[in-house]
């Protein structure tokens, strides 16, 4: 690999610093012993982390978000696997349209989707229902799972399935014993990506959550619009840590480049 010159190295360092600076500042502020948002010049304190764990709304919202992300990521992955198989393996009328439809939530602003769901939910009387919240999340996070599974399917050698067939395996056995295990890295990567996206989703969730189903990002948004204190920084730090750990696991298991860029 080619080495960077001193100028390029300085440039890259600046870019990386620029991207990371806000996160670093938030993480530092979280450790302040003061009552205001300030850098911890005079000693470190975990009091704001403690405050988060003693704030029942935040704890409840965290579990809401976790439960929501777990359900919606699992359901969207279960929908994405057969969809991806249909799109890559079969040619039928409207295949491209279907593919575009499945991926469209990526390009439609979440604000628009949120308003649309708000109208729909109040129309069918689903406001405040956890099930319908899951459905809304499934719609916006499925494209992430689908994209990864599509990439995995496109890179897969079909002859392994043919070989299994010649060895006496029926269609279902081929899927269960060969296709699914070979796709597993793509599927689990898709699941994790969907999970993170659901856990982080704010714009749409603002419109469709009810007091009993408020997610963590929505709770933070509500809290921050009333008052700003270092507890927000502590929550943010926890979320950054959680996402970071997930990303490291993803990278160790499958390689992030391969998951996010696809095998081409």
């Amino acid at each position: 690999m080619q080495k960077n010159g001193p100028f390029a190295l300085a440039f890259h360092t600046l870019i990386v610093l620029f991207v990371l600076a806000p996160l670093i500042v938030v993480c530092l502020v979280a450790f302040t012993p003061q009552n205001t948002l300030s850098l911890p010049w005079d000693g470190l304190s975990l009091r704001w982390f403690a405050a988060v764990f003693h704030h029942p709304d935040f704890v409840a919202s965290f579990w809401n978000s976790a439960r929501l992300a777990l359900f919606s990521a699992t359901i969207s992955t279960m929908l994405a696997v057969p969809s991806a198989l249909a799109i890559t393996r079969y040619s039928f009328r409207g295949r491209d349209a279907l593919n575009a439809l499945f991926l469209s939530p990526l390009i439609i602003p979440h604000l628009v989707i949120g308003v649309a769901f708000l109208r729909l939910f109040s129309f069918i009387g689903a406001t405040g229902s956890f099930g319908w919240l899951v459905a809304a999340h499934v719609m916006v996070i499925m494209p992430y799972a689908l994209r990864l599974i599509l990439a995995a399917l496109n890179g897969m050698d079909l002859s392994a399935e043919m070989a299994a067939r010649t060895l006496g395996a029926g269609e279902w056995t081929v899927f269960r014993r060969i296709t699914f295990p070979m796709l597993l890295p793509g599927i689990s990567g898709g699941w994790l990506l969907a999970f993170i996206n659901s856990f982080d989703e704010l714009t749409m969730s603002i419109f469709v959550t009810a007091p009993s189903t408020v997610t963590l990002p929505v709770r933070m948004y509500m809290y921050a619009s009333e008052s700003i204190d270092p507890m927000m920084a502590a929550v943010s730090t926890l979320m950054i840590a959680l996402t970071g750990v997930t990303m490291i696991i993803l990278d160790r298991l499958f390689g992030l480049d391969q998951l996010l860029v696809g095998k081409g």
Binding site: S159, A160, A163, G168
Partner: peptide
């Protein structure tokens, strides 16, 4: 007849081994 019922042995160009 379906390949599964013919029971012929096939060796593919890419070997098509099951990687897992």
């Amino acid at each position: 007849e379906k390949p599964a019922r013919r029971g012929l042995g096939v060796v593919f160009q890419s070997y098509a081994l099951f990687p897992h």
